[in-house]
């Protein structure tokens, strides 16, 4: 299932929770784990001067420095690195998002795994209400599923057994469902399909009455049944639910209620042609707030 995982890390506290997930998935599923670190953007035209992630000092990047950083990463993750783990460590210089995507193009991983942003003085993004730009850019352009681990809660507690798939019934959601089915079947997980009925955006300016809300819930449930249930029957367990409210809040609540190990959602930002690299609002908010890892699918 996850034969090759690209774990992009700052090798600082912001990536610690992601690291636990990355190493545990790699060990549980005998994946090859590529631990990838981007040193930063060269600060002068033709030089290789970068700002060190940890010391914040300007340093000349040469072979010695790269070797030192590689060793430093090995030391940082020492407790996870044993003989049973199949891993490599790579270090690159450049714009983090671009380098991560470049590395993904070379490695062709089944999964890119990203932790919290380091853009806020080492704070994980879970305290903020938006994702860092690197996470947004990678999620938008990656050719494979991207797994986010932002909040400390979002850890991997002994494997995957319960997956929540959030759908908005779009074509990309159908792709995400294919992926969710594949994960659930391969890893013998239960799958809960969830749709959040957005009552804040519906009929802007007009408050829906309860009959209307419940009618729409029934319609959405019928849609879930006709669209997904025939395939869900292939799994050992599944459930289908529709809740009304603000979608990202309801998805996070539902995943918490289900004690999900993993949330899978599609996002639509590949369709955005402008320079706006933000993820779809709901996905971004779910990634920031969810109490479990979130996989975003964009194609």
């Amino acid at each position: 299932m996850f034969k090759k995982i690209l774990f992009a890390t700052s090798a600082t506290g912001a990536s610690d929770h992601a690291a636990r997930v990355a190493f545990n998935i790699a060990k549980s599923y005998q994946s090859h784990l590529n631990i990838f670190h981007v040193l930063g953007v060269p600060s002068r035209g033709y030089s290789q001067v970068v700002v060190d992630v940890k010391t914040k000092e300007r340093v000349d990047v040469d072979e010695d420095y790269t070797a030192w950083v590689t060793e430093d990463i090995r030391t940082y993750y020492e407790k996870y690195l044993d003989e049973s783990l199949n891993y490599t460590i790579d270090v690159a210089v450049g714009v983090p998002a671009r380098e991560i995507l470049r590395q993904a193009k070379i490695l062709k991983p089944d999964l890119i795994l990203l932790g919290g942003s380091t853009g806020d003085e080492g704070e994980s993004v879970y305290k903020k209400s938006s994702l860092g730009s690197t996470l947004q850019k990678v999620a938008k352009s990656a050719n494979c599923p991207v797994l986010f681990v932002n909040r400390p809660a979002a850890s991997f507690w002994g494997g995957l057994s319960n997956i929540v798939f959030g759908t908005d019934f779009s074509k990309i959601s159908d792709k995400a469902f294919d992926f969710a089915m594949k994960v659930a079947k391969t890893l013998d997980c239960e799958l809960s399909v969830f749709h959040a009925l957005d009552i804040s955006a519906l009929h802007a300016g007009k408050m829906l009455n309860q009959d209307e809300i419940e009618q729409q819930i029934r319609e959405s449930l019928r849609k879930i049944r006709s669209r997904y249930e025939p395939r869900l029957k292939e799994l050992k367990g599944y459930s289908m639910d529709v809740w009304e409210g603000i979608p990202f809040i309801e998805i996070v609540k539902y995943a918490r209620d289900k004690q999900a190990d993993l949330l899978i959602m599609a996002h639509h930002s590949r369709k955005i042609s402008s320079e706006d690299i933000r993820l779809g609002g709901n996905v971004e908010q779910v990634i920031v707030r969810a109490g479990c890892p979130v996989i975003s699918i964009n194609k």
């Binding site: 507690w157 002994g158 494997g159 057994s161 319960n162 004690q259």
Partner: peptide, 17 residues
């Protein structure tokens, strides 16, 4: 306990709940 051989504690809690 959380980390145990085989299934982990959170799996127990899910079954319990």
């Amino acid at each position: 306990d959380i980390e145990m051989p085989g299934e982990w504690g959170p799996r127990f809690y899910r079954q319990l709940s």
